[in-house]
Design a protein around this nucleic acid. Sequence first.
RNA 1: GUGGCCGUAGCUCAAGGGCAGAGCACCAGACUGUGGCUCUGGGGGUUGCGGGUUCAAGUCCCGUCGGCCACCCCA
Length: 428
Amino acid sequence: MTVNAPRGMPDILPGEIGRWHAVEARVRDFARRFGYREIRTPAVEHTEVFQRAVGSGTDIVDKEMYTFTDRGGRSLSLRAEGTAPVLRAFLEHNLGAGGLPVKLYYICPIFRYDRPQAGRYRQHTQFGAECIGAAEPAADADVLSLAVRLVQSLGLVRFEVHLSSVGDEVCRPGYTAVLREYYRPHLADLCEDCRRRFEVAPLRLLDCKREHDRRIARQAPRMLDHLCDPCRAHLNGVRAHLDAMGVAYTIDPLIVRGLDYYTRTAWEAVSETLGAQNVIFGGGRYDGLAGQLGGRPTPGVGFGMGLERLLLVLEQEGVALGGDPALDVYIATAGADATRALQLADRLRRAGIATDLEVTARGLRAQLKQADRLGARFALLLGEDEIRRGVATIREMATGAQDEAPLDALPDVLAARLRPEAIGKARG
RNA sequence: GUGGCCGUAGCUCAAGGGCAGAGCACCAGACUGUGGCUCUGGGGGUUGCGGGUUCAAGUCCCGUCGGCCACCCCA
């Protein structure tokens, strides 16, 4: 081993790519079913996009971004999060001009300089969906149901959606003050991190994992009890919609999202089988985000879903996904005439038949072994005898049954035998 | 960024100061034009990398890189 991939950025090898294709296909199908259109934004943004959207003071912006200065002296950052770039593009191209709401989705890599562990990578892939321009609770329920129905359709059972409201600019400041007053007498008992949180991010006090601090958190006043009337009505509206669709959730007052742009609705879907990194998708409403990015105030709601974690939990729960693409035909050459084998392969491929051929001229035994390994339905034998007579021997690998067909007729003959299961269809 | 455990063949793992091994995989032969089963043989390693201790280091020590697990944070 001389050089390896950067830390926390694993290769996805051919043996596992079938699982990715299966999940990505299902994601795109559900995005289509729910009326979302794909958007692709650059892998890098002006650093400012994330600073203004996610917020200085958050871990993502303060210590997890891949930030660099380009040759023109601009500060750029690898995409650290999915929603901010989409909103930036929405505003930049005035995508709302054609009428609101605009529903957009993406599948793209996200980069965060974090310490890798199970379910956490420095480059990971997110599927995200954003519904921009609708302030009503129905939009929240619509987006959230996309995520839930998608993972359910993949066979995921053991997960729970935790739902809450983080309030808005009207009620959150008041709640923060109440929370500080509650925590102030406990300050000496808290862990070091929590004493820091008390100053910079009091809401995250509720999220501490230490048992001692959790006990204090459980007794703390809750945002849900301090929502202003519009926020309360919004949450109740979302719940009513979800209930009507039969989308299950539990109200979890302790949910705290690590990004500053969230308002009102916030949710996390937590796996019961994953380790410490157990959030499969998380999201919520961000009515202030467009304004923070310098655009006209526009409400929005969306989520991000970690596809590596989704694959991980599906594997742990024993869900079977797509296998390798099947090979229809392998052309073996006994007597070594690469030109004729290539000509035949070319004709079969143009007829839509997945064809591989022998290019190393080894013994026939080894060639059939290769055909077997590749999972070919048929092996074609092209030897001196066959060439002289203008035919090829067709061997059905599963049974060993052999017959012959004229070279000219092979595309039709093979297509007919392959047709019952569509040509090139995935196996397994 | 902090802590713990671990890095030996393509893969899974032995060897715990004294000649680096096994199973699977790969290649070849038995079967001179026929895969899977069986048998026989073969190729493969700077023991992650660098330094140190020692007559002698996968083995002990230090550093570094990487993996896993947890903290933190998030998807």
